[in-house]
Design a protein around this nucleic acid. Structure first.
Lengths: 253, 253
DNA sequence: CGCTGCATTGAAATATCTCAATCAATGTGG
DNA sequence: CCACATTGATTGAGATATTTCAATGCAGCG
Protein backbone atom coordinates (compact mmCIF):
# COMPACT_ATOMS: atom_id res chain seq x y z
CA UNK A 1 0.00 0.00 0.00
CA UNK A 2 1.10 3.53 -0.67
CA UNK A 3 1.71 6.32 1.83
CA UNK A 4 -1.97 7.22 1.75
CA UNK A 5 -3.75 10.13 0.22
CA UNK A 6 -1.87 13.39 0.24
CA UNK A 7 -4.38 15.95 -0.95
CA UNK A 8 -7.13 14.70 1.34
CA UNK A 9 -5.00 13.77 4.32
CA UNK A 10 -6.90 16.16 6.58
CA UNK A 11 -10.42 15.16 5.57
CA UNK A 12 -12.38 14.59 8.81
CA UNK A 13 -9.19 14.26 10.77
CA UNK A 14 -10.04 14.09 14.43
CA UNK A 15 -13.66 13.31 13.65
CA UNK A 16 -13.53 9.81 12.28
CA UNK A 17 -11.49 6.82 13.30
CA UNK A 18 -8.27 7.11 11.28
CA UNK A 19 -8.10 3.43 10.36
CA UNK A 20 -11.63 3.61 9.09
CA UNK A 21 -11.22 6.65 6.95
CA UNK A 22 -7.90 5.98 5.25
CA UNK A 23 -9.34 3.91 2.44
CA UNK A 24 -12.21 6.30 1.96
CA UNK A 25 -9.83 9.23 1.55
CA UNK A 26 -7.87 7.30 -1.04
CA UNK A 27 -11.03 6.43 -2.95
CA UNK A 28 -12.08 10.05 -2.94
CA UNK A 29 -8.67 11.24 -4.01
CA UNK A 30 -8.81 8.88 -6.96
CA UNK A 31 -11.76 10.73 -8.46
CA UNK A 32 -10.36 14.23 -8.06
CA UNK A 33 -10.52 15.72 -11.53
CA UNK A 34 -7.94 18.45 -10.96
CA UNK A 35 -6.74 21.02 -8.50
CA UNK A 36 -7.52 24.67 -8.94
CA UNK A 37 -6.22 27.83 -7.31
CA UNK A 38 -7.89 31.13 -6.44
CA UNK A 39 -6.26 34.29 -5.15
CA UNK A 40 -7.10 36.17 -1.94
CA UNK A 41 -10.64 37.54 -1.84
CA UNK A 42 -11.55 35.98 -5.18
CA UNK A 43 -15.03 34.54 -5.55
CA UNK A 44 -14.80 30.76 -5.64
CA UNK A 45 -18.46 29.98 -6.19
CA UNK A 46 -21.32 32.41 -6.73
CA UNK A 47 -24.57 32.10 -4.85
CA UNK A 48 -27.28 30.33 -6.79
CA UNK A 49 -24.94 28.66 -9.22
CA UNK A 50 -25.71 25.13 -10.37
CA UNK A 51 -22.74 22.90 -9.69
CA UNK A 52 -21.49 19.70 -11.29
CA UNK A 53 -18.62 19.32 -8.86
CA UNK A 54 -17.67 20.17 -5.29
CA UNK A 55 -14.45 21.64 -3.95
CA UNK A 56 -12.33 20.21 -1.18
CA UNK A 57 -9.99 22.72 0.49
CA UNK A 58 -6.41 21.52 0.37
CA UNK A 59 -4.63 24.72 1.36
CA UNK A 60 -5.67 28.17 2.49
CA UNK A 61 -8.87 29.50 4.00
CA UNK A 62 -12.26 30.34 2.58
CA UNK A 63 -15.37 32.20 3.71
CA UNK A 64 -18.94 31.03 3.23
CA UNK A 65 -21.36 33.94 3.34
CA UNK A 66 -24.81 35.30 2.61
CA UNK A 67 -25.23 38.81 1.29
CA UNK A 68 -28.17 41.05 0.55
CA UNK A 69 -28.68 43.58 -2.21
CA UNK A 70 -27.23 46.35 -0.04
CA UNK A 71 -23.94 44.53 0.26
CA UNK A 72 -24.41 43.70 3.93
CA UNK A 73 -22.79 40.38 4.47
CA UNK A 74 -23.07 37.63 7.06
CA UNK A 75 -20.45 34.92 7.23
CA UNK A 76 -21.87 31.49 7.94
CA UNK A 77 -18.61 29.56 8.16
CA UNK A 78 -14.86 29.82 7.89
CA UNK A 79 -13.48 26.87 5.92
CA UNK A 80 -10.08 25.47 6.80
CA UNK A 81 -7.92 22.84 5.11
CA UNK A 82 -9.63 19.47 5.31
CA UNK A 83 -13.11 20.88 4.73
CA UNK A 84 -15.28 20.46 1.70
CA UNK A 85 -16.45 24.00 1.05
CA UNK A 86 -19.55 23.11 -0.93
CA UNK A 87 -20.23 19.40 -0.64
CA UNK A 88 -23.87 20.14 0.08
CA UNK A 89 -24.13 21.03 -3.61
CA UNK A 90 -23.88 17.30 -4.29
CA UNK A 91 -27.39 16.54 -3.01
CA UNK A 92 -28.70 20.11 -3.43
CA UNK A 93 -27.36 20.86 -6.92
CA UNK A 94 -27.02 24.58 -6.30
CA UNK A 95 -25.60 26.94 -3.73
CA UNK A 96 -27.74 29.05 -1.47
CA UNK A 97 -24.70 31.12 -0.45
CA UNK A 98 -21.44 32.39 -1.84
CA UNK A 99 -17.88 31.22 -1.26
CA UNK A 100 -14.91 33.53 -1.23
CA UNK A 101 -11.23 32.79 -0.86
CA UNK A 102 -9.82 34.45 2.24
CA UNK A 103 -6.24 33.67 1.27
CA UNK A 104 -4.78 32.03 -1.78
CA UNK A 105 -6.53 28.67 -1.81
CA UNK A 106 -5.79 25.36 -3.46
CA UNK A 107 -8.86 23.25 -4.10
CA UNK A 108 -9.48 19.70 -5.28
CA UNK A 109 -12.35 19.48 -7.74
CA UNK A 110 -14.53 16.42 -7.20
CA UNK A 111 -17.04 15.73 -10.01
CA UNK A 112 -20.52 14.86 -8.80
CA UNK A 113 -20.90 12.17 -11.44
CA UNK A 114 -17.87 10.25 -10.18
CA UNK A 115 -18.93 10.90 -6.60
CA UNK A 116 -22.38 9.43 -7.24
CA UNK A 117 -20.84 6.31 -8.70
CA UNK A 118 -18.43 6.03 -5.78
CA UNK A 119 -20.93 6.41 -2.94
CA UNK A 120 -23.15 3.86 -4.68
CA UNK A 121 -20.36 1.33 -4.26
CA UNK A 122 -19.20 2.49 -0.83
CA UNK A 123 -21.89 2.95 1.79
CA UNK A 124 -19.28 3.79 4.42
CA UNK A 125 -18.02 6.65 2.34
CA UNK A 126 -21.55 7.87 1.74
CA UNK A 127 -22.13 7.94 5.49
CA UNK A 128 -18.90 9.78 6.11
CA UNK A 129 -19.65 12.42 3.50
CA UNK A 130 -23.15 12.88 4.86
CA UNK A 131 -21.63 13.22 8.34
CA UNK A 132 -19.26 15.92 7.13
CA UNK A 133 -22.11 18.03 5.78
CA UNK A 134 -24.01 17.65 9.04
CA UNK A 135 -20.98 18.92 10.92
CA UNK A 136 -21.55 22.16 9.03
CA UNK A 137 -25.15 22.19 10.20
CA UNK A 138 -24.06 21.64 13.80
CA UNK A 139 -21.63 24.55 13.51
CA UNK A 140 -24.39 26.70 12.04
CA UNK A 141 -26.56 25.92 15.06
CA UNK A 142 -23.78 26.88 17.44
CA UNK A 143 -23.34 30.17 15.59
CA UNK A 144 -27.08 30.76 15.87
CA UNK A 145 -26.77 30.48 19.62
CA UNK A 146 -23.84 32.90 19.60
CA UNK A 147 -25.62 35.48 17.47
CA UNK A 148 -28.83 35.17 19.41
CA UNK A 149 -27.62 34.97 22.98
CA UNK A 150 -24.06 36.29 23.35
CA UNK A 151 -22.91 39.89 23.25
CA UNK A 152 -20.37 41.09 20.73
CA UNK A 153 -17.28 40.42 22.82
CA UNK A 154 -18.40 36.87 23.63
CA UNK A 155 -19.23 36.14 19.99
CA UNK A 156 -15.74 37.13 18.96
CA UNK A 157 -14.28 35.03 21.76
CA UNK A 158 -16.36 32.10 20.57
CA UNK A 159 -15.17 32.41 17.00
CA UNK A 160 -11.56 32.52 18.13
CA UNK A 161 -11.95 29.39 20.24
CA UNK A 162 -13.85 27.52 17.53
CA UNK A 163 -11.16 28.24 14.98
CA UNK A 164 -8.40 27.21 17.37
CA UNK A 165 -10.20 23.98 18.18
CA UNK A 166 -10.95 23.10 14.56
CA UNK A 167 -7.41 23.90 13.50
CA UNK A 168 -6.10 21.74 16.33
CA UNK A 169 -8.17 18.81 15.10
CA UNK A 170 -6.79 19.38 11.60
CA UNK A 171 -3.24 19.51 12.95
CA UNK A 172 -2.78 23.16 12.07
CA UNK A 173 -2.65 24.84 15.47
CA UNK A 174 -0.53 24.48 18.53
CA UNK A 175 1.55 27.59 19.14
CA UNK A 176 -1.20 29.91 20.30
CA UNK A 177 -1.15 31.93 17.10
CA UNK A 178 -4.12 31.58 14.78
CA UNK A 179 -2.74 31.08 11.27
CA UNK A 180 -5.85 32.58 9.66
CA UNK A 181 -5.47 36.18 8.46
CA UNK A 182 -9.01 37.28 9.26
CA UNK A 183 -9.52 41.02 9.25
CA UNK A 184 -11.46 42.74 11.99
CA UNK A 185 -14.09 43.29 9.33
CA UNK A 186 -14.31 39.51 8.85
CA UNK A 187 -14.81 38.98 12.55
CA UNK A 188 -17.50 41.64 12.40
CA UNK A 189 -19.23 39.95 9.47
CA UNK A 190 -19.14 36.63 11.27
CA UNK A 191 -20.39 38.10 14.54
CA UNK A 192 -23.19 40.24 13.20
CA UNK A 193 -21.67 43.48 14.45
CA UNK A 194 -20.11 46.55 12.87
CA UNK A 195 -16.40 46.65 12.12
CA UNK A 196 -16.03 49.58 14.48
CA UNK A 197 -17.52 47.66 17.34
CA UNK A 198 -15.41 44.62 16.55
CA UNK A 199 -12.40 46.85 16.90
CA UNK A 200 -13.51 48.02 20.33
CA UNK A 201 -14.09 44.43 21.40
CA UNK A 202 -10.59 43.46 20.35
CA UNK A 203 -9.21 46.40 22.27
CA UNK A 204 -10.97 45.22 25.43
CA UNK A 205 -9.78 41.65 24.92
CA UNK A 206 -6.22 42.92 24.53
CA UNK A 207 -6.40 45.24 27.53
CA UNK A 208 -7.56 42.35 29.65
CA UNK A 209 -4.65 40.25 28.44
CA UNK A 210 -6.82 37.62 26.76
CA UNK A 211 -5.32 37.95 23.30
CA UNK A 212 -2.62 39.96 21.57
CA UNK A 213 -2.54 41.14 18.01
CA UNK A 214 0.94 40.98 16.60
CA UNK A 215 1.93 42.76 13.44
CA UNK A 216 0.38 41.51 10.23
CA UNK A 217 -2.97 40.80 11.92
CA UNK A 218 -1.72 37.69 13.65
CA UNK A 219 -3.95 36.83 16.57
CA UNK A 220 -2.30 35.19 19.58
CA UNK A 221 -4.36 33.48 22.24
CA UNK A 222 -2.96 34.33 25.66
CA UNK A 223 -5.73 33.19 27.97
CA UNK A 224 -7.69 30.37 26.36
CA UNK A 225 -9.55 29.60 29.58
CA UNK A 226 -10.95 33.10 29.69
CA UNK A 227 -12.00 32.92 26.03
CA UNK A 228 -13.83 29.68 26.71
CA UNK A 229 -15.48 31.12 29.79
CA UNK A 230 -16.64 34.23 27.95
CA UNK A 231 -18.04 32.25 25.05
CA UNK A 232 -19.49 29.42 27.15
CA UNK A 233 -17.60 27.17 24.79
CA UNK A 234 -18.43 23.49 24.76
CA UNK A 235 -16.73 21.61 21.96
CA UNK A 236 -19.36 18.86 21.75
CA UNK A 237 -20.87 20.39 18.61
CA UNK A 238 -17.62 19.83 16.73
CA UNK A 239 -17.96 16.07 17.21
CA UNK A 240 -14.23 15.95 17.68
CA UNK A 241 -11.75 13.32 18.78
CA UNK A 242 -13.18 10.42 16.90
CA UNK A 243 -16.89 10.88 17.55
CA UNK A 244 -17.69 8.64 14.61
CA UNK A 245 -16.14 5.30 15.45
CA UNK A 246 -15.55 2.25 13.35
CA UNK A 247 -18.01 0.12 15.30
CA UNK A 248 -20.65 2.79 15.02
CA UNK A 249 -20.67 2.44 11.30
CA UNK A 250 -19.96 -1.26 11.14
CA UNK A 251 -22.90 -2.29 13.25
CA UNK A 252 -25.26 -0.54 10.92
CA UNK A 253 -24.41 -2.38 7.78
CA UNK B 1 -50.88 -0.03 -5.91
CA UNK B 2 -52.34 1.33 -2.72
CA UNK B 3 -53.29 4.88 -1.86
CA UNK B 4 -49.73 5.68 -0.93
CA UNK B 5 -48.15 6.33 2.42
CA UNK B 6 -50.35 8.09 4.94
CA UNK B 7 -48.03 8.90 7.80
CA UNK B 8 -45.30 10.24 5.56
CA UNK B 9 -47.48 11.85 2.94
CA UNK B 10 -45.94 15.27 3.59
CA UNK B 11 -42.30 14.21 3.57
CA UNK B 12 -40.45 16.65 1.29
CA UNK B 13 -43.69 17.73 -0.30
CA UNK B 14 -43.01 20.63 -2.59
CA UNK B 15 -39.30 19.91 -2.57
CA UNK B 16 -39.02 16.72 -4.56
CA UNK B 17 -40.82 15.57 -7.67
CA UNK B 18 -43.93 13.80 -6.39
CA UNK B 19 -43.67 10.89 -8.80
CA UNK B 20 -40.12 10.31 -7.75
CA UNK B 21 -40.72 10.35 -4.03
CA UNK B 22 -43.89 8.25 -3.71
CA UNK B 23 -42.10 4.92 -3.60
CA UNK B 24 -39.47 6.25 -1.25
CA UNK B 25 -42.10 7.42 1.21
CA UNK B 26 -43.73 4.01 1.11
CA UNK B 27 -40.41 2.28 1.73
CA UNK B 28 -39.73 4.55 4.67
CA UNK B 29 -43.16 4.06 6.09
CA UNK B 30 -42.66 0.32 5.96
CA UNK B 31 -39.83 0.51 8.49
CA UNK B 32 -41.59 2.78 10.99
CA UNK B 33 -41.41 0.91 14.28
CA UNK B 34 -44.26 2.72 15.96
CA UNK B 35 -45.83 6.09 16.49
CA UNK B 36 -45.42 7.98 19.72
CA UNK B 37 -47.09 11.03 21.19
CA UNK B 38 -45.81 13.84 23.40
CA UNK B 39 -47.80 16.58 25.07
CA UNK B 40 -47.29 20.36 24.69
CA UNK B 41 -43.92 21.60 25.92
CA UNK B 42 -42.70 18.09 26.71
CA UNK B 43 -39.09 17.27 25.95
CA UNK B 44 -38.93 14.93 22.96
CA UNK B 45 -35.17 14.39 22.86
CA UNK B 46 -32.55 15.66 25.26
CA UNK B 47 -29.38 17.30 24.04
CA UNK B 48 -26.42 14.98 23.93
CA UNK B 49 -28.47 11.82 23.92
CA UNK B 50 -27.31 8.88 21.83
CA UNK B 51 -30.05 7.81 19.50
CA UNK B 52 -30.89 4.52 17.83
CA UNK B 53 -33.84 5.95 15.94
CA UNK B 54 -35.05 9.21 14.44
CA UNK B 55 -38.44 10.85 14.66
CA UNK B 56 -40.56 11.99 11.75
CA UNK B 57 -43.21 14.59 12.64
CA UNK B 58 -46.67 13.42 11.57
CA UNK B 59 -48.80 15.96 13.44
CA UNK B 60 -48.14 18.99 15.58
CA UNK B 61 -45.17 21.31 15.89
CA UNK B 62 -41.79 21.01 17.58
CA UNK B 63 -38.95 23.32 18.55
CA UNK B 64 -35.27 22.58 18.08
CA UNK B 65 -33.15 24.64 20.44
CA UNK B 66 -29.82 25.19 22.15
CA UNK B 67 -29.69 26.25 25.76
CA UNK B 68 -26.95 27.27 28.14
CA UNK B 69 -26.56 26.62 31.83
CA UNK B 70 -28.37 29.83 32.69
CA UNK B 71 -31.48 28.67 30.88
CA UNK B 72 -31.10 31.17 28.06
CA UNK B 73 -32.42 29.48 25.00
CA UNK B 74 -32.00 29.95 21.26
CA UNK B 75 -34.35 28.22 18.87
CA UNK B 76 -32.63 26.91 15.77
CA UNK B 77 -35.67 25.62 13.93
CA UNK B 78 -39.42 25.19 14.11
CA UNK B 79 -40.39 21.73 12.86
CA UNK B 80 -43.70 21.26 11.07
CA UNK B 81 -45.51 18.13 9.87
CA UNK B 82 -43.50 16.49 7.12
CA UNK B 83 -40.14 17.18 8.77
CA UNK B 84 -37.78 14.74 10.37
CA UNK B 85 -36.95 16.43 13.65
CA UNK B 86 -33.66 14.63 14.26
CA UNK B 87 -32.65 12.72 11.16
CA UNK B 88 -29.14 14.08 11.50
CA UNK B 89 -28.79 11.68 14.43
CA UNK B 90 -28.62 8.90 11.85
CA UNK B 91 -25.12 9.83 10.64
CA UNK B 92 -24.16 11.73 13.83
CA UNK B 93 -25.39 9.25 16.45
CA UNK B 94 -26.13 11.92 19.03
CA UNK B 95 -27.91 15.23 19.30
CA UNK B 96 -26.08 18.50 19.74
CA UNK B 97 -29.36 20.25 20.63
CA UNK B 98 -32.66 19.56 22.31
CA UNK B 99 -36.12 19.00 20.86
CA UNK B 100 -39.30 20.10 22.55
CA UNK B 101 -42.92 19.60 21.55
CA UNK B 102 -44.62 22.93 20.97
CA UNK B 103 -48.07 21.35 20.74
CA UNK B 104 -49.20 17.80 21.18
CA UNK B 105 -47.12 15.94 18.59
CA UNK B 106 -47.46 12.59 16.90
CA UNK B 107 -44.16 11.13 15.74
CA UNK B 108 -43.13 8.16 13.65
CA UNK B 109 -40.14 6.33 15.08
CA UNK B 110 -37.68 5.16 12.42
CA UNK B 111 -34.99 2.75 13.68
CA UNK B 112 -31.50 3.54 12.43
CA UNK B 113 -30.73 -0.14 11.89
CA UNK B 114 -33.60 -0.55 9.43
CA UNK B 115 -32.80 2.79 7.87
CA UNK B 116 -29.21 1.74 7.26
CA UNK B 117 -30.35 -1.41 5.55
CA UNK B 118 -32.86 0.53 3.48
CA UNK B 119 -30.55 3.25 2.19
CA UNK B 120 -28.02 0.58 1.29
CA UNK B 121 -30.56 -0.86 -1.12
CA UNK B 122 -32.02 2.44 -2.29
CA UNK B 123 -29.51 5.07 -3.36
CA UNK B 124 -32.33 7.42 -4.38
CA UNK B 125 -33.76 7.34 -0.91
CA UNK B 126 -30.34 7.91 0.60
CA UNK B 127 -29.94 11.00 -1.57
CA UNK B 128 -33.36 12.28 -0.63
CA UNK B 129 -32.74 11.84 3.08
CA UNK B 130 -29.38 13.55 2.79
CA UNK B 131 -31.08 16.37 0.91
CA UNK B 132 -33.64 16.78 3.68
CA UNK B 133 -30.95 17.22 6.33
CA UNK B 134 -29.19 19.79 4.16
CA UNK B 135 -32.43 21.74 3.91
CA UNK B 136 -32.07 22.21 7.66
CA UNK B 137 -28.56 23.52 7.15
CA UNK B 138 -29.77 25.97 4.50
CA UNK B 139 -32.45 27.21 6.87
CA UNK B 140 -29.85 27.59 9.61
CA UNK B 141 -27.77 29.76 7.28
CA UNK B 142 -30.73 31.96 6.49
CA UNK B 143 -31.40 32.38 10.20
CA UNK B 144 -27.76 33.31 10.70
CA UNK B 145 -28.23 36.12 8.22
CA UNK B 146 -31.37 37.24 10.02
CA UNK B 147 -29.76 37.25 13.44
CA UNK B 148 -26.62 38.92 12.19
CA UNK B 149 -27.97 41.54 9.84
CA UNK B 150 -31.66 42.28 10.49
CA UNK B 151 -33.16 44.22 13.37
CA UNK B 152 -35.67 42.68 15.73
CA UNK B 153 -38.77 43.64 13.79
CA UNK B 154 -37.37 42.29 10.53
CA UNK B 155 -36.29 39.04 12.16
CA UNK B 156 -39.81 38.45 13.38
CA UNK B 157 -41.18 39.30 9.96
CA UNK B 158 -38.78 36.80 8.44
CA UNK B 159 -39.83 34.03 10.76
CA UNK B 160 -43.48 34.65 9.98
CA UNK B 161 -42.86 34.51 6.24
CA UNK B 162 -40.68 31.43 6.47
CA UNK B 163 -43.30 29.55 8.44
CA UNK B 164 -46.06 30.59 6.05
CA UNK B 165 -43.99 29.49 3.07
CA UNK B 166 -42.97 26.14 4.57
CA UNK B 167 -46.53 25.45 5.67
CA UNK B 168 -47.74 26.30 2.20
CA UNK B 169 -45.34 23.77 0.68
CA UNK B 170 -46.60 21.19 3.17
CA UNK B 171 -50.20 21.99 2.29
CA UNK B 172 -50.98 23.42 5.72
CA UNK B 173 -51.45 27.11 5.01
CA UNK B 174 -53.66 29.13 2.78
CA UNK B 175 -56.06 31.26 4.78
CA UNK B 176 -53.61 33.84 6.09
CA UNK B 177 -53.71 32.47 9.62
CA UNK B 178 -50.61 30.70 10.88
CA UNK B 179 -51.77 27.46 12.50
CA UNK B 180 -48.74 27.37 14.83
CA UNK B 181 -49.42 28.51 18.41
CA UNK B 182 -46.04 30.15 18.98
CA UNK B 183 -45.90 32.42 22.00
CA UNK B 184 -44.27 35.80 21.82
CA UNK B 185 -41.59 34.25 23.99
CA UNK B 186 -40.99 31.65 21.28
CA UNK B 187 -40.62 34.35 18.65
CA UNK B 188 -38.18 36.06 21.01
CA UNK B 189 -36.16 32.89 21.50
CA UNK B 190 -36.02 32.34 17.76
CA UNK B 191 -35.07 35.93 17.05
CA UNK B 192 -32.43 36.42 19.69
CA UNK B 193 -34.33 39.20 21.46
CA UNK B 194 -36.11 39.58 24.78
CA UNK B 195 -39.78 38.69 25.12
CA UNK B 196 -40.53 42.29 26.03
CA UNK B 197 -38.97 43.55 22.86
CA UNK B 198 -40.76 40.93 20.79
CA UNK B 199 -43.99 42.26 22.21
CA UNK B 200 -43.13 45.79 21.15
CA UNK B 201 -42.26 44.58 17.67
CA UNK B 202 -45.60 42.83 17.34
CA UNK B 203 -47.36 45.96 18.46
CA UNK B 204 -45.62 47.96 15.74
CA UNK B 205 -46.47 45.33 13.13
CA UNK B 206 -50.10 45.43 14.20
CA UNK B 207 -50.28 49.21 14.27
CA UNK B 208 -48.95 49.32 10.74
CA UNK B 209 -51.57 46.83 9.64
CA UNK B 210 -49.09 44.14 8.66
CA UNK B 211 -50.45 41.41 10.90
CA UNK B 212 -53.25 40.97 13.40
CA UNK B 213 -53.28 38.83 16.48
CA UNK B 214 -56.67 37.28 17.02
CA UNK B 215 -57.70 35.73 20.27
CA UNK B 216 -55.89 32.59 21.30
CA UNK B 217 -52.58 33.80 19.91
CA UNK B 218 -53.56 33.22 16.30
CA UNK B 219 -51.38 35.25 13.97
CA UNK B 220 -53.01 36.49 10.80
CA UNK B 221 -50.92 37.81 7.95
CA UNK B 222 -52.56 40.91 6.49
CA UNK B 223 -49.80 42.34 4.33
CA UNK B 224 -47.50 39.58 3.16
CA UNK B 225 -45.74 41.88 0.69
CA UNK B 226 -44.68 44.17 3.51
CA UNK B 227 -43.45 41.25 5.60
CA UNK B 228 -41.36 40.04 2.68
CA UNK B 229 -40.01 43.52 2.08
CA UNK B 230 -39.06 44.01 5.72
CA UNK B 231 -37.33 40.65 5.96
CA UNK B 232 -35.71 40.79 2.53
CA UNK B 233 -37.26 37.38 2.03
CA UNK B 234 -36.07 35.27 -0.87
CA UNK B 235 -37.45 31.74 -0.77
CA UNK B 236 -34.56 30.21 -2.72
CA UNK B 237 -33.05 28.76 0.45
CA UNK B 238 -36.14 26.60 0.97
CA UNK B 239 -35.44 24.79 -2.30
CA UNK B 240 -39.17 24.74 -2.84
CA UNK B 241 -41.46 23.82 -5.69
CA UNK B 242 -39.63 20.76 -6.82
CA UNK B 243 -36.03 21.93 -6.69
CA UNK B 244 -34.85 18.33 -6.71
CA UNK B 245 -36.12 16.89 -9.97
CA UNK B 246 -36.32 13.36 -11.19
CA UNK B 247 -33.76 13.86 -13.90
CA UNK B 248 -31.36 15.44 -11.45
CA UNK B 249 -31.13 12.23 -9.53
CA UNK B 250 -31.50 9.85 -12.42
CA UNK B 251 -28.54 11.17 -14.36
CA UNK B 252 -26.27 10.54 -11.44
CA UNK B 253 -26.88 6.89 -10.98
C1' DC C 1 4.87 61.08 -2.74
C1' DG C 2 0.29 60.38 -2.81
C1' DC C 3 -2.99 56.23 -2.72
C1' DT C 4 -5.31 52.74 -0.63
C1' DG C 5 -6.94 49.63 2.79
C1' DC C 6 -7.29 48.73 7.40
C1' DA C 7 -7.17 49.99 12.31
C1' DT C 8 -8.45 53.30 15.71
C1' DT C 9 -10.96 56.87 18.28
C1' DG C 10 -14.72 60.10 19.81
C1' DA C 11 -19.35 61.64 20.05
C1' DA C 12 -24.07 61.40 19.27
C1' DA C 13 -27.98 58.58 17.80
C1' DT C 14 -30.48 54.33 18.00
C1' DA C 15 -31.73 49.69 19.37
C1' DT C 16 -32.41 46.69 22.77
C1' DC C 17 -32.44 45.05 27.58
C1' DT C 18 -33.76 44.88 32.33
C1' DC C 19 -36.69 45.63 35.97
C1' DA C 20 -40.96 46.39 37.80
C1' DA C 21 -45.68 46.87 37.56
C1' DT C 22 -50.23 45.99 35.59
C1' DC C 23 -53.72 43.53 32.98
C1' DA C 24 -56.42 39.78 31.04
C1' DA C 25 -57.62 35.12 30.63
C1' DT C 26 -57.73 30.72 32.60
C1' DG C 27 -57.98 27.21 35.85
C1' DT C 28 -58.47 25.35 40.64
C1' DG C 29 -60.13 24.46 45.15
C1' DG C 30 -63.51 25.54 48.44
C1' DC D 1 -70.02 31.49 42.79
C1' DC D 2 -65.78 33.45 44.84
C1' DA D 3 -60.82 33.83 46.09
C1' DC D 4 -56.65 32.89 44.49
C1' DA D 5 -52.69 31.39 41.65
C1' DT D 6 -50.71 31.03 37.12
C1' DT D 7 -49.47 32.26 32.60
C1' DG D 8 -48.77 35.26 28.97
C1' DA D 9 -49.30 39.97 27.15
C1' DT D 10 -48.49 44.77 27.86
C1' DT D 11 -46.46 49.16 29.33
C1' DG D 12 -43.11 52.65 31.25
C1' DA D 13 -38.64 54.20 32.60
C1' DG D 14 -33.94 53.99 33.02
C1' DA D 15 -29.68 51.42 31.87
C1' DT D 16 -26.76 49.29 28.51
C1' DA D 17 -25.12 47.75 24.00
C1' DT D 18 -24.31 48.81 19.54
C1' DT D 19 -24.43 51.71 15.36
C1' DT D 20 -23.34 55.52 12.58
C1' DC D 21 -20.67 59.19 11.11
C1' DA D 22 -16.61 61.55 10.84
C1' DA D 23 -11.98 62.06 11.53
C1' DT D 24 -7.22 60.38 12.24
C1' DG D 25 -3.28 57.26 12.07
C1' DC D 26 -0.48 54.01 9.88
C1' DA D 27 1.62 50.81 6.74
C1' DG D 28 2.44 49.04 2.20
C1' DC D 29 2.84 50.13 -2.53
C1' DG D 30 3.17 51.93 -7.29
Amino acid sequence: MRDGPVMLERFLRGRVDEDLVRDERAALEAIVARTITFGPREEVVARGKRLEHSYYLIEGYALRHLSNHRGERQLVQVSIPGDFVDLHAFPMKRLDHGIEALTRVKLAEVPHSALAELVGRRPHLARILWFSTLLDAAMHREWLFCLGRLNAECRIAHLIVELAERLRLAGLYSSGVLPIPLLQRDFAEASGISAVHANRCFRVLQERGVVTIDGDARLRIVDMAELKRLSQFDSAYLYGDGALKLDTLADQE
